[in-house]
Design a protein around this nucleic acid. Structure first.
Lengths: 100, 100
DNA sequence: CCTAAGATTCGAATAATATCGAAATATGCG
DNA sequence: CGCATATTTCGATATTATTCGAATCTTAGG
């Protein structure tokens, strides 16, 4: 399965925003079973609608996943996707043989 | 030296554009001493002014460096910066202990 | 000094993104 | 059902990014 440059760019763009990078960090450092959107909102102190928009961006990029638990929506980081993304960067780089 | 979230976000944003990711790839796969802007333009088939703008973005983010050689400007990838960036992502992730 | 080649900067139009309050949707519970 | 809580979607605005032709700048060479 060929990894598309466009998809990687979309994931990198999703991470390329201070608020979203902060969201990912908060999700990663949160409980393994996931962090409710409300908890993220309280911790990061941003309006709910803004947070929701950023969560959607990260989710569409495939970097986080959501699972409903009652009235809560638990967000979890997709570590496999993160690994694939960083791997992609280095596959690109090492193909030239200049760095590793 | 503490790596700032904002700086990482800026670097990720620089990579988060298909054309710029393509430029980085071309630079990485090019000769070690650097690739002239004109070569990149011919290979990627984009207007010179557009290319120049993207090169400036990548350069300001600290992902590539430029060195003049006569009338040419040779662009090189900053592998150290790329490594630091991918490392940063995993430092963030592994702090939670959930993934590695 | 003049010209040509390589590359950037300017300027201006268009497109995309970010933000956030208000309204709407989904879920659980009494 | 009706209400409360959690979250998203809508709508509207402000900001920023992207694009590219034309003009400018830089350097080398005659």
């Amino acid at each position: 399965m060929a990894r598309k440059l466009e998809d990687s760019a979309a994931q990198l763009a999703a991470l390329g925003h201070p608020v979203r990078l902060g969201i990912l960090r908060a999700v990663v450092k949160g409980p393994q079973e996931g962090t409710p959107a409300g908890d993220l909102q309280a911790r990061l102190d941003i309006p709910a609608s803004t947070l929701s928009h950023h969560l959607a961006t990260l989710s569409q990029a495939g970097l986080i996943t959501a699972e409903r638990q009652g009235t809560f929506l638990l967000y979890r980081a997709d570590f496999k996707a993160l690994r694939a993304l960083t791997d992609y960067i280095w596959e690109e780089c090492c193909q030239g043989g200049a760095c590793c």
